[in-house]
Amino acid sequence: MTDLSTNSSFSDTRPQDAGFADYFALLKPRVMTLVVFTALVGLLAAPVPVHPFIGFCAILFIAVGGGASGALNMWWDADIDQVMKRTSKRPIPSGRVDSGEALAIGLVLSAFSCVFLALATNLLAGGLLAFTIFFYVVVYTMWLKRSTPQNIVIGGAAGAFPPMIGWAAATGQIGIESVLMFCLTFMWTPPHFWALALFMRSDYDDAGVPMLTVTHGRRSTRVHILVYTVLLAALAVGTGFTAIGGPVYLAVAVVLNALFLKGAWNIYHRDETASELDNFATERRFFKLSLLYLFAHFGAILLEAGLARFGMGGWT
């Protein structure tokens, strides 16, 4: 009787035999947390109550759709992921998962998530999820990412759709409130990624990705961060006076936008020598703050919606 373990050809670990965790990593679980959270806020902030189980399914399918687009992104970008230090340990460049498998998983999960979201909630939500996956994979990954320094700006729309999908899942419509949540994430994305590009500079250079730092220079990137942060602050604070805002949201927005503006101002005023001397401490702090910034804003919207159920949220 023979067994695979007795065969000498299997004595070495085969990198192509992936474990479950490797397939899960294809779905970009860290990005998924942002998708899940913002979609959940969109769903719960909507004025139409959703059955808890349907709400759970809607968020799950949105998360799966986000994961599927991550897998398709890794399939297409396997060549540049191999070059970049930050992404070289991903399942495909490290040889643990075959790129064909990633493509198959991405396509199957995309179809599954859109169809089931439409069945669980409504056609608009399913259609929006399908469009988001298309936008992220085709428009951003295949087209914009390697061709224009505006890749992050336009491609950021893909990451901004989840709250709109959550809202549509609950209401069956696209309201002005969901557009505001979309705009918040959309405007937040460029300064977030440009700060990352400033301190992960060799990565994008090596991969030939035309980030703003590569095409327009690092000085220009610092200016862009400041300009987008000013626009974002106006939008974020202004949202406080709308139907999804309220005193709690406004307080959070004022404090965080003041800190964010100060961070962007500091980045604008720094030169490369000073940045290199402290290993881009200011840029790294700004990047970390940007993560808190988005979660806190959406957390405040969620809190306002929760308080509204007890007659306390918003401006009424």
Binding site: D3, S5, F10, T13, R14, D17, G19, F20, Y23
Partner: peptide
């Protein structure tokens, strides 16, 4: 002959099978 030694390969395949299940 019984199988006594579990190779790393088997562990990975087991995790995959459990995950799919």
């Amino acid at each position: 002959m019984s199988i006594t030694k579990t190779h790393e390969l088997h562990k990975r395949r087991f995790s995959r099978n459990v995950g799919v299940g």
